[in-house]
Design a protein around this nucleic acid. Structure first.
Length: 851
RNA sequence: GGCCGAGUGGCGGAAUGGCAGACGCUGGGGACUUAAAAUCCCCUGCCCGAACGGGCGUGUGGGUUCGACUCCCACCUCGGCUACCA
C-alpha cells in the first residue's frame, strides 16, 4: 500500500505546531499593553490526579481555548493561563500507604497532566503556570491568611479594616485587650465539630465519610468538637448576596448561592422558663403563629438543656444527648427515620398569652442554626406537625387558609398549613393577614422587650482548618503563655516539615503534631512557642489563583496592582457546576477582603461564568471505572488527533448540556477535517491542490463564505460551538465540490476554522504560502450585503397548512409576495373558492392566508 | 421532600412565535477498485399509496394565536444538586 505523501498526518502536524508555539512563545500575554483591549479567559484549574485527564476536562478547556484564539484574532490582548490545584487528599493517602512524599506524587501527576493538556494544543501562556503547592505560591496564600487574621470587620462601613484600626474601649487590662482584639479578627479559633473516627483514630474529611461510616474500613464516624480555625464569612453575607446582581452568571448558579447563604427574616422571641431565672430565645420566621406554639424544642447540644431538665427527666435526657452526639450528620438528617425526642420536664411561658408549654429536646432542631431552639407550631409547620402527632402534643390552628376545604381540615387539626392566611385563635390579632400580623406582633414584642426583628443566615462561618499534612501550614505560633502570635510577612513561606510518617497523629491533630523540632519556635523577641499544626483546606489555594496569573513570579506581593488593574476581572470563567457554591463563594469572599484592604481593584473576580455539562459514557451512564465506560483522551488523540478530539467535544451538543460520548461521532468530525485537508492539499504530492487558484469566487460561494464567517463569529461569542461547526461543514461540503477553489476563499475559511482545529489550520495556512503563525491574523470580516440571499423560497399556507412554495427576490415587497401567493394554482385550489379574510406575510419566511 | 435542568427520527442534536428534523452518526443503494479500505453520489421521521400525492408527528392533557417544539396552566417521566435551616 502506497503511503500518500500528502495525506492528513495529524500526529506529525500536531507535534510540529505544538513545538512551534512553545519555541516561539506564541501565546505569551503582554502585561499592561494599553494599545489593545484585554480579555481574560480562565479555566477552573484541575487537581493533578494520578488518573490523569478525563474527557470532561478538555470540554471546558476547548471551549475557553476557542474563545481565547478567536479574541486574539479579533485584536484583543488575551490572558489564558493554566495551573494546578495541587494540595489534596489522594497524594497524602498514597503517602500514608507507600511513604512517598506527596510532593513527589504531585510532581509526577502534574508532569503527566501537563503533557496531556499540551497534547491538545491549548493556547495557554505556559510562562504563567502555577501550582498551589509551590512555596512561592503558598507563601502568598499564607500572606492572605495573615490579612484575615490581622483584620476586623467594620459594621458601619460594612468592610474589613486592618486590626490596628480597631477602636478599643477605654480602660481594658492587657489580657482583656488581647481578648477583645482576638474576638474580632476575621480568622479566629473556635471549638467546632469534626468527623472523628474512633476506630481509625483520626479526623476525616467530609468526602472520606460515606453513608455515616469511614470510606476506608467502614468504621463509624461521630462528631467531635475540636479546636479549629474559622473565617468570618458570615460578615460578608449581605455583600455576597448583593454582588450577585452585577454578575453575568447563570441564574441557576446565582440562586444556588443565594439559597446557600439562606437569608431569612423573622423575629427572635424570648420565652421565660417557668421556675427558673432563665429565658430561652427562639428564632422564627412566623411570629404571627405565636399563639399556636404548643411546645418548645431545643437542640440536644443546647447549653440550657442541662440547667432546666427536671430530676425525673435527667436520665432520659442525658441518654438522648449521648446518642445524638454519637450520630453522624447523615443519621441525623435521614428523613426516612421517625422523629425522636425527650421532654425535659420544664415549661416555657409563651409571652403572648402566658400559656405554659412543655420544653423538649430533639435532634430535628439544629444547634448551628438560629438560636438552637424553636417554638413549635404544629398546625403550621410540617416538622412540628409530624413531631406533635407522634408524641400526641396539642395542635392549635392559628392561621386560616383562604381555601374553604383546606380551612376546615386545618381547624380540625388534621392538616398542617404553612402558607399565608388570616389569623384565628390569636386574641386581639384575630382577622389580620399574615404579613400585617408579622409586623404588628414583632412591634408588640419589641415594646415589651420580649423579642425583636431578626435576620438569620444558613451560611456558617467557614471551618478553615484540616488535620492533614498536605496543605498550607498556618503561619501561626501558640506561645507558652497561651497567646497566638502571627508570623511576620517576611517569615513566609512557612514550609512543611519533612516527616517520616504521614499517618494521622492519633490524637486528632494533624501529622504535623509529630514533626519534632519543626514544632518548636523561638520568636524574634525570644518568646518560645509551638507551631499551629492544622493545615489549610484545599479551597485555600483556589481562592485567589486567578489573581496570581496576572503576575505569577512576583516576589514582593500577591500581584502587582497595575497588572491586576489591567487584567482583572476575569471576563470569562469556564468550569464544572460542582463548584457552583463552595469554590465560587469562597473565592468571592477572599476577593472582597482583598478589595477592602486595597489589594485588588474590582469588587468581584469573575464577571461571566459558564458551566460546561457532564460527558457521559457511550452507554449514557456516568463514566466510571466500575462501569468500564471511561474514554481515555490519550487514546482518542492517538487515534484521531487533537484537532478531532477538540472538534468532537464541541460538536457533541451545547456546552452546558449533559451528553453521551460516541466514538462514531469522533470519526465524523475526523472525516470533516480530512475533507478540509483534501480541499486544500493534493494528497499525492503534498503541495497545494491544483483546484486552489487565484480567482474570484462565484456569487454562491462568496455568499456562503460570508454567511459562514458571520455565523461562526457570532456563535463563538455565544459559546454555541456545535452550530458553528455545523456551518463550517456546510461550507466545506460546498467548496470541496468546486473544480476551482479561489485561494482567498480557502484562506479566509482556514482562519475561521483555526480556533477550533488550530494544528491543521496552521499547517494549511503554511501550505497556502504563509511563513508565520495565523494566531494573530485578523479574523476575516464579513460583508452583510454579500451574505444576503438574492432569492428566497417562501412557504404559502392556507389556514396554517402548507399548500405551495414560491420563490421571490429578497427585496420583494409585501404586495408582490401577496399577489404571487394568491395566484398559485395549488393555493387557489386549497381555498376552494373562498375569499381570503386576511393575508399574513412574513418576509423571507412564509405567507399565511386566512379564509 | 425541596430546588434546578431536560423530554424532538434508530442515535447526538438543529430550529426559541413563522417551511420541524440543519449538521453529524447509523442504516440502505450506487460509483470507483481484480478485491477491500478510503473516497464520491443518492436515499433514510412514521402511516397509506405502484406513483402523483395525502395524512400524522416535537412526553401527556388543556389554553393563547392567523400560526406553538417555542408562550401560559396542569400532569407524567428522566437527570443533576440538595437535605428537618424553624
Amino acid at each position: 500500500m502506497d503511503e500518500k505523501k500528502g495525506a492528513y498526518k495529524f500526529g506529525e502536524i500536531e507535534k510540529k505546531w505544538q513545538a512551534y508555539w512553545q519555541a516561539n512563545k506564541t501565546f505569551r500575554a503582554a502585561d499592561c499593553d494599553y494599545s489593545k483591549e484585554k480579555f481574560y479567559v480562565l479555566d477552573m484549574f484541575p487537581y493533578p490526579s494520578g488518573e490523569g485527564l478525563h474527557v470532561g476536562h478538555p470540554e471546558g478547556y476547548t471551549a475557553s481555548d476557542i474563545v481565547a484564539r478567536y479574541k486574539r484574532m479579533k485584536g484583543f490582548n488575551v490572558l489564558h493561563p493554566m495551573g494546578w490545584d495541587a494540595f489534596g487528599l489522594p497524594a497524602e493517602q498514597y503517602a500514608v500507604q507507600t511513604g512517598t512524599h506527596p510532593a513527589q506524587t504531585t510532581q509526577k501527576n502534574i508532569d503527566n497532566m501537563r503533557r496531556q493538556i499540551k497534547s491538545l494544543g491549548f493556547s495557554y501562556d505556559w510562562d504563567r503556570e502555577i501550582a498551589t503547592t509551590d512555596p512561592d505560591y503558598f507563601r502568598w496564600t499564607q500572606w492572605i491568611f495573615l490579612k484575615f487574621f490581622n483584620s476586623y470587620f467594620d459594621e458601619d462601613e460594612q468592610k474589613a479594616k486592618p486590626i490596628e484600626q480597631l477602636p478599643l474601649p477605654e480602660g481594658l487590662s492587657e489580657k482583656d485587650r488581647y481578648e477583645y482584639i482576638n474576638s474580632r479578627r476575621l480568622a479566629y479559633e473556635a471549638q467546632a465539630p469534626v468527623n472523628w473516627c474512633p476506630a481509625l483514630g483520626t479526623v476525616l474529611a467530609n468526602e472520606e465519610v460515606v453513608g455515616g461510616v469511614s470510606e476506608r474500613g467502614g468504621h463509624p464516624v461521630i462528631r467531635k468538637p475540636m479546636r479549629q480555625w474559622m473565617l468570618r464569612i458570615m460578615k460578608y453575607c449581605e455583600r455576597l448576596l448583593a454582588g450577585l446582581d452585577e454578575l453575568d452568571w447563570p441564574e441557576s448558579i446565582k440562586k444556588l448561592q443565594t439559597d446557600w447563604i439562606g437569608k431569612s427574616i423573622g423575629a427572635d422571641v424570648d420565652f421565660r422558663v417557668d421556675g427558673h431565672d432563665v429565658t430561652i430565645r427562639v428564632f422564627t420566621t412566623r411570629p404571627d403563629t405565636l399563639f399556636g406554639a404548643t411546645y418548645m424544642v431545643m437542640a440536644p447540644e443546647h447549653p440550657l438543656a442541662d440547667v432546666i431538665t427536671t430530676d425525673e427527666c435527667k436520665k432520659a435526657v442525658k441518654e438522648y444527648r449521648k446518642i445524638a452526639a454519637g450520630k453522624s450528620d447523615l443519621d441525623r438528617t435521614d428523613l426516612a427515620k421517625e422523629k425522636t425526642g425527650q421532654p425535659t420536664g420544664a415549661y416555657a411561658i409563651n409571652p403572648v398569652n402566658g400559656e405554659k408549654i412543655p420544653i423538649w429536646i430533639s435532634d430535628y432542631v439544629l444547634i448551628s442554626y438560629g438560636t438552637g431552639a424553636i417554638m413549635a407550631v404544629p398546625a403550621h409547620d410540617e416538622r412540628d406537625f409530624e413531631f406533635a402527632t407522634k408524641f400526641e402534643l396539642p395542635i392549635i390552628p392559628v392561621v386560616e387558609p383562604d381555601d374553604a376545604a383546606e380551612a376546615e381540615k386545618v381547624r380540625a387539626g388534621q392538616l398542617c398549613f404553612a402558607g399565608d392566611g388570616t389569623a384565628i385563635n390569636s386574641g386581639e390579632f384575630n382577622g389580620l393577614r399574615t404579613a400585617e400580623f408579622k409586623q404588628k406582633i414583632t412591634h408588640w414584642l419589641e415594646e415589651r422587650e420580649q423579642g425583636a426583628e431578626a435576620v438569620n443566615y444558613k451560611l456558617r462561618d467557614w471551618l478553615f482548618s484540616r488535620q492533614r499534612y498536605w496543605g498550607e501550614p498556618f503561619p501561626l505560633v501558640h506561645t507558652r503563655d497561651g497567646r497566638i502570635v502571627a508570623l511576620t510577612e517576611d517569615a513566609l513561606p512557612l514550609e512543611l516539615p519533612k516527616v517520616d510518617n504521614y499517618k494521622p497523629s492519633g490524637t486528632g491533630e494533624s501529622p504535623l503534631a509529630n514533626s519534632g523540632e519543626w514544632l518548636d519556635v523561638k520568636l524574634p523577641d525570644g518568646t518560645k512557642g509551638r507551631r499551629e499544626t492544622n493545615t489549610m483546606p484545599q479551597w485555600a489555594g483556589s481562592c485567589w489563583y486567578y489573581l496570581r496569573y496576572t503576575d505569577p513570579r512576583n516576589n514582593d506581593s500577591i500581584c502587582d496592582i497595575q497588572k491586576e488593574n489591567y487584567w482583572m476581572p476575569v471576563d470569562l470563567y469556564i468550569g464544572g457546576a460542582e463548584h457552583a457554591v463552595l469554590h465560587l463563594l469562597y473565592a468571592r469572599f477572599w476577593h472582597m477582603l482583598l478589595y477592602d484592604l486595597g489589594y485588588v481593584s474590582t469588587p468581584e473576580p469573575f464577571q461571566k461564568l459558564v458551566n460546561q455539562g457532564m460527558i457521559l459514557g457511550q452507554d449514557s451512564q456516568k463514566m466510571s471505572k466500575s462501569r468500564g465506560n471511561v474514554i481515555n483522551p490519550d487514546k482518542v488523540i492517538a487515534d484521531y488527533g487533537a484537532d478531532s478530539m477538540r472538534l468532537y467535544e464541541m460538536f457533541m451538543g451545547p456546552l452546558e448540556a449533559t451528553k453521551p460520548w460516541n466514538m462514531q461521532g469522533v470519526e465524523g468530525v475526523h472525516r470533516f477535517l480530512g475533507k478540509t485537508w483534501r480541499m486544500t492539499v493534493d494528497e499525492s504530492s503534498g503541495r497545494l491542490a491544483e483546484a486552489v487558484q487565484e480567482s474570484d469566487a462565484d456569487e454562491q460561494t462568496a455568499r456562503l463564505l460570508h454567511q459562514t464567517i458571520k455565523k461562526v463569529g457570532s456563535d463563538i461569542e455565544q459559546l454555541a460551538f456545535n452550530t458553528a461547526i455545523s456551518q463550517m461543514m456546510i461550507f466545506v461540503n460546498h467548496l470541496s465540490k468546486l473544480p476551482i477553489r479561489p485561494k482567498s476563499v480557502v484562506e479566509k475559511f482556514i482562519l475561521v476554522l483555526a480556533p477550533f482545529a488550530p494544528h491543521i489550520a496552521e499547517e494549511l495556512w503554511a501550505k497556502l504560502g504563509h511563513s508565520k503563525t495565523l494566531a494573530y491574523e485578523p479574523w476575516p470580516q464579513f460583508d452583510p450585503e454579500l451574505a444576503k440571499e438574492k432569492e428566497v423560497e417562501l412557504a404559502v399556507q392556507v389556514m396554517g397548512k402548507i399548500r405551495d412554495k414560491i420563490v421571490v427576490s429578497a427585496d420583494a415587497t409585501e404586495e408582490d409576495i401577496k399577489q404571487k401567493a394568491l395566484s398559485s394554482e395549488k393555493v387557489i385550489a386549497a381555498m376552494a373558492g373562498k375569499k381570503p379574510k386576511r393575508v399574513i406575510v412574513i418576509k423571507s419566511r412564509l405567507v399565511n392566508i386566512v379564509i
